[in-house]
């Protein structure tokens, strides 16, 4: 491993542009600088810097409690950081809710999927962004179900994620199918960046591969993906860069093409730090 593969461990690591579309070194689509977050006395993030460029697939890995989900929640508007800056296309932004992040084109596949199990597949895809009919009934919020059903079918068809009927109740689908809905929803709406928090956790091997292909396809369209996963072989295979969080800090910024899977594991476990926290 070379020294430029690993960022400093003082939390001031800067990501290196890389990968298929991020090599231009232009303005990152999304970046965070000096993000800190604590919950009571627990310091979850300690000055995290991260950049995600157009077309990149960036893996965010770390042991349990490293701060991965906290960072994703901050980027998706679920948490507000205690300090630090978030930029979208170079502009400083702040998210007071997940709606703010979604309005900026940041979509998230949450670890718990964030589905309403009693609603249909199409309703889950359009929840919060429902389409209304035209005409007077629009003023009473009359849903354009036909349009949303057709769009949902197309969205899922494009992603080759087959659910059966989009009228099916989400809670009656298998875990893999529910995960597929969440992924399909994010892909359908995500225009700037897609955050995926363990998107393959409940999937079988074949479905994991399909999500991997989907991630690569999305990135090839210029939309970057920030992927959190414990599936390190998959992260190693599909990511352009891998950022390692350790105890709330970015400790490494690696390119899989220039390191081994074992190198990544050693950063995750802290072994590569040589005893330094």
């Amino acid at each position: 491993m070379t020294s430029d593969q690993a960022g400093p461990v003082d939390g001031s690591a800067r990501t290196q542009p890389g990968g298929r579309a991020g090599a231009d070194g232009g303005v990152p689509v999304v970046s965070v600088e000096g993000i800190t977050k604590h919950f009571g006395s627990v310091q979850a993030l300690r000055g995290v810097d991260l950049e995600v460029h157009a077309g990149e697939v960036v893996g965010l890995v770390g042991d349990n409690g490293a701060g991965k989900s906290t960072l994703v929640n901050i980027l998706s508007g679920g948490y507000q950081p205690n300090s630090g800056t978030i930029r979208v296309d170079g502009q400083r932004v702040s998210f007071s809710s997940s709606l703010d992040a979604r309005r900026m084109g940041i979509e998230t596949v949450y670890q718990d999927l964030a589905l309403a199990p009693d609603l249909s597949v199409w309703a889950n895809i359009f929840l919060g962004r429902e389409e209304l009919v035209k005409g007077p009934l629009r003023h009473v919020g009359w849903l354009n179900r036909r349009s949303m059903i057709a769009s949902a079918e197309k969205d899922l068809e494009r992603t080759r994620i087959r659910i059966g009927s989009v009228g099916s109740v989400a809670g009656r689908l298998s875990g893999g199918q529910r995960q597929a809905i969440a992924v399909g929803r994010a892909v359908a709406w995500g225009s700037r960046v897609i955050l995926m928090d363990e998107p393959t956790a409940a999937l079988g091997v074949e479905q994991q591969e399909r999500v991997g292909e989907l991630v690569a396809t999305v990135a090839s369209q210029g939309v970057p993906v920030l992927l959190i996963s414990h599936n390190l072989p998959q992260v190693y295979r599909i990511c352009d860069r891998v950022v390692v969080l350790f105890q709330g800090q970015v400790v490494a910024n690696l390119r899989p093409s220039e390191c081994s899977l074992d190198d990544i594991v050693s950063w995750i476990t802290g072994a590569a730090l040589g005893g330094r926290p």
């Binding site: 679920g78 809710s97 979604r102 309403a116 609603l119 309703a123 929840l127 919060g128 919020g141």
Partner: peptide
Amino acid sequence: TRFGLRTYAIGSNGLSARRAG
């Protein structure tokens, strides 16, 4: 209507409804 759909959504999973904006 949208009001009704959101009523169901809140009861089904309030956190998801919040995340949906």
